[in-house]
Design a protein around this nucleic acid. Sequence first.
DNA 1: GAGCACTGC
Length: 755
Amino acid sequence: MAFNQQNSTERGVSSGSKNKNVHPAAAKEPLYGFMPRKVGGDQVRFALEHEINPFTKQPHTQQYRKILEARKKLPVYAQMDEFYKMFNRNQIIVMVGETGSGKTTQIPQFVAYSDLPHTRNKLVACTQPRRVAAMSVAKRVADEMDVQLGRQVGYSIRFEDMTEPGTTFLKYMTDGMLLREAMNDPDLQRYSTIILDEAHERTLATDILMGLLKALAKRRSDLKIIIMSATLDALKFQKYFGLASDAAAPLFKVPGRTHPVEVFYTQEPEPDYVEAAIRTVLMIHRAEDPGDILLFLTGEEEIEDACKKIKLEADDLINQDPDSVGPLICIPLYSSLPPSQQQRIFDAAPSARTPDGPPGRKVVVSTNIAETSLTIDGIVYVVDPGFSKQKVYNPRIRVESLLVSPISKASAQQRAGRAGRTRPGKCFRLYTEKDFMSELEEQTHPEILRSNLANTVLELVKAGIKDLVRFDYVDAPAPETLMRALELLNYLAALDDDGNLTPLGAIMAEFPLDPQLAKMLIVSPEFKCSNEILTITSMLSVPNVWLRPNNQRKEADAAKALLSIPDGDHLTLLNVYNNYMQNKYDKNWAWTNYLSARALAQAENVREQLKRTMERYEVELVSIQEPRKLYLAVRQALCCGFFMQVAHKEGEKGSYLTVKDNQVVGLHPSCGLDNQPEWVIFNEFVLTTRPYIRTVTEVRPEWLLEYAPLYFDLSSFADGETKRALQRVVNKRSGKFDRVDSGADSGAQKKRKKA
DNA sequence: GAGCACTGC
């Protein structure tokens, strides 16, 4: 096994320590004698202490020296020699490091000193699941290396490439960005080492990258790979990345630096976890030492509700016993809150009302966002009811939905750990220890097992993966999920019948969009409405733009009605965006119309990015001047992407049946259609209190037959009202298509006037 | 007559 071999080539060069005789050349050149991938800890420490920064040739600053002293105290720094021994001898390493080990900032630097990418026109990449992490870690590492961010050390995220080609050799990036690069350069030739950080989070992009990198390691023996993860998952990754079938990849382990957290369980299961959570928070406030509380709940409504109740009950307690109960503030936290509100979690706890009075306390009530994305210092108590909203995918009806489900053991541990960041803490689990041991899954199912994979499959095919079913996944998705994705891509003509990428599919893959949206956008010039489809696509790619504050629902609905287009919600989105652009001079326009300025600005940003991609692939930007014709064209273009998301009205009660999948659905209450058209196309199927279709536009069956003849081949339909309705259209259409076409339109117009 | 858990391109 390579792991245990002596490396004879290493001995000759490991003499660069400052304690020994320094070669005269090394006095000027800190990296003198460094051989790529044969570098040892002594040499690197010598370079770190050197007068001169080897990458800028400038003298090191005071700040550099100060940060270096702090770096030396990190657990990972003490294991530098061990790291180089393992790194030099292995192509793939799995590394575990608990929070506070310094792995994210230090390991990529260690690698850079060994790879010497700046001398070989290469890059070391380190991926992160989130943009903010990529940005902030890159900034920190640039400071540590005494270089300017964006030069030797940079980052690359969607909408922002903070790197300098030819200069940057250490790059932090989102996992999604690296996946995009792999699509166009499957060998990732620019990189000497690729580090996947936070691999235990198992994002879709990280999982796919692990598969691609495992295969790539066999083609590129010069490429090194480091998988960084939390402890629990290490063995799985070691086995997966073992290059021989029986050998596991070596493990590099670094202890963390956190404080102990005492865990408490309830004696009995709690029937109402929200009620129990509120009770526990108040119990802590009354009985425990000072320190802030973090409570995990599942969603916005639950959180706002709990905050109100906690506030009310805490005020009661204070009134009853003002001498022993301190003031309490309750701060909600979830992603759709505006950033200014999210900042409140960093406010200090309220101070005591009198100099010797009981101290105040801060309670943060949060979704899972506080489990990974955001860390709040000062948390000493965590209340964990054991639930979160999780995405589930049903490939049979192609529906993703959110379900409140029990969390995994790994997730529970992560939550508990949030109590021990600044000092020893306590975690109150609102379930029994027995349930923790026997009912909770070890790990949260990776995203790849819970998602619609249409997008991913297209990316993989573009990256040159021929056989998706036999691809070496860390966890293989259900075959039906893959079949559903392949089927969709085939109907969209992105893949041919043999599963090969078509020229259309190759362009579709270049757009950061779901395949349906990409297809619709690419064909839209044929309908002379690509400007408008571009806008609609952008609006569909950002969070909901409609605001509906609890106490102003009527006003919000009225404002929305003024912007609505009766033919369909897609056209309403177009109208909203155009109005937004026309009123840009008015800073309050979005707010006075109950629209999210943040989401609209995002749509504008996305639109610019998509526009650049359209220009690169020569997808024309065109419009029709006459509004009525334009709207008609837009609705036709929609059919080219979303013909598999059509519903047909059944009976008079306003219920619809989705075509082919035969799901009974209702129009979502947010739908702006002023009648109930016989045929509609929808953007999404949501499963909440009932099955709903959301963002809906009226279409004509003739368009479906015309633009998606394969999917609307009547022989493929089960008998039923939908098939009979389509059959009638086919019969009428034979011979006099144009007349029927305009007739249907005026019929719909009349109906609308009546309503 | 209701909801965006969280990310990412």
